[in-house]
C-alpha cells in the first residue's frame, strides 16, 4: 500500500509545521507514526483513515463531523475504553486505538 501522509507541512500563512516529538500509536494493531500534541482522529486522517466506527442501528461507517468534541461522531475505543471523542483526545505513546462497533465493549474496569 502506498504510504499516505496528509499533514500540511508547509503553509503560506501559518508557516512550516513545527517539529514535534515522534511517537507511535496502534490502530487496530497496526503501528502508526504520530507527533506529540496531535489529536487521535487527526493522526488517523493524516494516514488516510477516515472510517472510525460503525453505528449500532444502520451499521453505517462514521468519521469526523464537528472536530471540536460536540457531535460525538468520532468516538472510538481507546485503550479499552469505548466512546472516546478522538477529535479532542491527544495521542499518547503506545496508545491502542480501535475501530468501534456500535456502542463498543468495555474491556477494562475503570472503577
Amino acid at each position: 500500500m502506498k504510504k499516505k501522509d496528509l499533514r500540511i507541512y508547509k503553509h503560506p500563512i501559518l508557516g512550516d509545521l513545527p517539529e514535534r516529538k515522534k511517537i507511535y500509536i496502534y490502530f487496530n494493531g497496526k503501528k502508526l507514526t504520530a507527533y506529540e500534541g496531535e489529536m487521535i482522529a487527526a493522526v488517523l486522517y493524516a494516514n488516510g483513515i477516515r472510517r472510525l466506527r460503525r453505528t449500532e442501528r444502520f451499521k453505517e461507517v462514521r468519521g469526523i463531523f464537528c472536530a471540536i468534541g460536540r457531535c460525538t461522531d468520532c468516538v472510538m475505543t481507546v485503550d479499552g475504553i469505548p466512546n472516546i471523542r478522538t477529535c479532542i483526545t491527544p495521542v499518547k505513546e503506545k496508545m491502542k486505538i480501535e475501530f468501534q462497533e456500535g456502542l463498543g465493549k468495555w474491556k477494562k474496569k475503570i472503577w
Partner: peptide
C-alpha cells in the same frame, strides 16, 4: 438522547 445530547 444519544451521546451528543441533541447538539446537532
Amino acid at each position: 438522547m444519544g451521546l451528543c445530547q441533541g447538539k446537532t
